[in-house]
């Protein structure tokens, strides 16, 4: 009788221990700007990117596992910008400048024998292709602009992959967009195949946010052809339904969540659904929450 009680108690302890597995997603810096206090006005600027890359924990490791850089094809001047929107096109830098900053940061750390990520084996770079070419979200790319934008993004990926190979560290490239036509243009670009088959893990991912009619960017999953081999989706946890997550799983997508601000609604969703990637504008707060 006593033995059965001991076995019963041990079983419960094992069950509880099994349930308490540690969850630690890859922390991605949203819009290259994740130093508190959150300041969306500084999204996708070199200053914010440098400050975000410089975030370190007490152990000397970076606080992030990757960054999201937004690329914006400015139709009026045919420039590939590092910008979230066209609020101030004169202030925006060209996208290669952001990649050069990332390459320098990672190469220097790798050269010094320091870690390049918070915990992941690869530094993830989300290269987002913005789906409009002027101030209004209704100003969509022409076919030629799509090809130019895709070529720019492929060039960024090639630069990141080349730097990683030369300096001996690992990066992961995830090309993301709300726009299925831009992902298709990337997939069709002659540089995408060699990049994907190379040593740097290269993926395509869908972005989804607020649904229509409240916002015009988010497209239904059916708009993204299976032929593109998309295997990742990043969504805002407060703007999806339970059925959406089942749909993502049925397509075999790895899940990422993105957010602007750290609020209980988002944290509970992260805890419940355990996405592999979390894109945050508040890296220090989010990592401290994960480490609590």
């Amino acid at each position: 009788m006593a033995n059965s009680r001991i076995v019963f108690a041990l079983s419960w302890l094992l069950l509880i221990a099994g349930c308490a597995d540690e969850y630690s997603p890859r922390v991605i810096c949203h819009n290259s700007n994740c130093v508190e206090p959150a300041s969306p006005d500084d999204d996708d600027t070199l200053e914010a990117l440098a400050a975000s890359l410089a975030l370190e924990g007490e152990d000397g490791r970076p606080l992030i596992d990757g960054v999201e850089i937004d690329t914006f094809w400015y139709g009026a001047t045919n420039r590939c910008l590092f910008a979230h929107d066209l609020a101030d096109p004169t202030r925006a830098d060209d996208a290669p400048a952001a990649v050069a900053l990332i390459n320098d940061f990672l190469s220097e750390r790798a050269g010094d024998g320091r870690h390049t990520t918070r915990q992941a084996e690869e530094f993830s770079v989300f290269i987002e292709l913005k789906g409009h070419v002027a101030l209004s979200k209704a100003d969509k790319h022409s076919p030629a602009q799509r090809q130019q934008h895709a070529a720019c993004a492929i060039g960024l990926g090639q630069s990141l992959a080349q730097s990683a190979t030369l300096a001996g560290y690992r990066v992961e490239l995830i090309y993301t967009s709300f726009d299925p036509l831009l992902l298709a243009a990337l997939h069709a670009d002659s540089g995408f195949g060699p990049l994907k088959s190379g040593p740097t893990r290269t993926r395509l991912g869908i972005l989804q946010g607020i649904r229509r009619p409240l916002d015009s960017q988010t497209e239904p999953l059916s708009a993204f052809p299976k032929e593109l081999d998309i295997d990742f989706i990043s969504v805002h946890p407060q703007w999806i339904r339970s059925a959406d997550r089942h749909a993502f799983a049925s397509r075999g997508f790895e899940l990422g969540y993105w957010m602007f601000s750290l609020v209980p609604e988002t944290l509970h969703a992260i805890e419940a659904h355990r996405p592999s990637y979390v894109t945050t504008s508040e890296a220090r707060a989010f990592v401290r929450w994960l480490s609590r």
């Binding site: 508190e36 602007f260 609604e265 508040e282």
Partner: peptide, 22 residues
């Protein structure tokens, strides 16, 4: 609190407040 800078809500753009209104 939490050793982080204090923040107040702003309505300058959707990115500033949309997660803060639930």
């Amino acid at each position: 609190g939490g050793g982080l800078p204090a923040e107040t809500i702003s309505f300058a753009s959707g990115r500033h407040y949309i997660d803060l209104v639930n």
